[in-house]
């Protein structure tokens, strides 16, 4: 292959890997938004907890599969607690108030982690080694395949869940019209709880997948959370496919931007693109074009 194409392929691999992580975080935002119209700014902390708790369990001598399970379970529990103790109590508060509650939750979780697990950076071992795989001259590490594979599996699972199970349909119904859902017997509070649990699960999975590449740290969720939010908005808030498209697109924009234009302004470029998209499509790429209710 000509070198220019190999270079492009390399940029795409790199962008897809980051993009898949953004997509997982964005899906977490979308799930909670759908169920409650809350933007959960503590989503990044779920990502952080996934990685940090896995590391903590590993350092206690627990095996990797068990450590991952434990970390996901604990993160889900924390997600449920956040919903039960904070969001549910403030259900009727203003949107901005809810944002601040979740920002506060994020600060609290970061503080808690730094006190209990320390402030050091930690690496997780790669799931299947670090030997690069050569694909048409471009290279990929096995962990990237794990990230892409798990992300794809999560998408399929979510698709099946929402379209083929009663519970999944109940969640969708609640997001479309909470009152009507309640009338036909959906337990709206339970749906809310479930969506926080699921989001926490997605966040934890993303955090665990990426930790072998980037290392984990009690503040690693700040930027990942922000990027995930950006991806969710880019795709269209509340849209599952939108979150995935937004995430992958964001990763690719960053990678191509750094590769072809300027690495100095890579992060800014992502936001410029998002602003540009919003100016022309005020509900994101795949968001619902709703008329405002009066």
């Amino acid at each position: 292959m000509p070198p220019a194409l190999v270079e492009l392929l390399q940029f795409l691999f790199s962008g897809l890997t980051s993009g898949a992580i953004y997509a997982l975080v964005a899906l977490g935002f979308a799930l909670i938004y759908n169920a409650s119209h809350v933007i959960n700014f503590a989503q990044g902390e779920f990502v952080m907890l996934g990685g940090m708790v896995t590391w903590a369990l590993l350092s206690q001598g627990v095996g990797l599969p068990l450590a991952i399970l434990g970390a996901v379970a604990l993160t889900v529990l924390i997600g449920l607690a956040l919903e039960k103790l904070a969001i549910e109590r403030a259900r009727n508060a203003d949107v901005v108030t809810l944002i601040i509650i979740t920002v506060g939750a994020g600060i609290f979780l970061r503080g808690l982690t730094s006190v209990t697990l320390g402030k050091d950076l930690h690496a997780l071992p790669a799931f299947s080694g670090n030997d690069p795989i050569d694909i048409l001259g471009a290279t990929l590490i096995p962990q990237s395949l794990w990230i892409l594979g798990v992300t794809a599996a999560v998408m399929v699972a979510l698709h099946l869940f929402f379209n083929h199970t009663l519970l999944g349909k109940a969640i969708l119904a609640t997001s479309h019209n909470p009152l009507a859902a309640r009338l036909v017997g959906v337990n709206v509070n339970f749906v809310l709880l479930l969506s926080f649990g699921l989001s926490a699960l997605l966040g934890a999975v993303a955090g665990i997948l990426i930790a072998p590449i980037t290392a984990t740290h009690f503040e690693v969720g700040i930027m990942l959370g922000l990027k995930g939010f950006a991806a969710a908005i880019l795709g269209g808030l509340g849209s599952g496919p939108g979150a995935i498209v937004g995430g992958l697109l964001l990763g690719i924009i960053e990678s191509l931007g750094a590769g072809y234009i300027s690495s100095e302004y890579k992060d800014a470029m992502a936001f410029v693109v998002i602003l540009g998209v919003l100016f022309f499509m005020p509900s994101g790429l795949l968001g619902k074009r709703g008329t405002e209710r009066v």
Partner: peptide, 20 residues
């Protein structure tokens, strides 16, 4: 002369450019 932001998770693009 390439750069990356401190919270970046992937520098393959910049390094590919350097390599080429």
């Amino acid at each position: 002369d390439e750069t990356y932001a401190p919270s970046d998770t992937d520098m393959v693009a910049q390094l590919t450019k350097i390599k080429n």
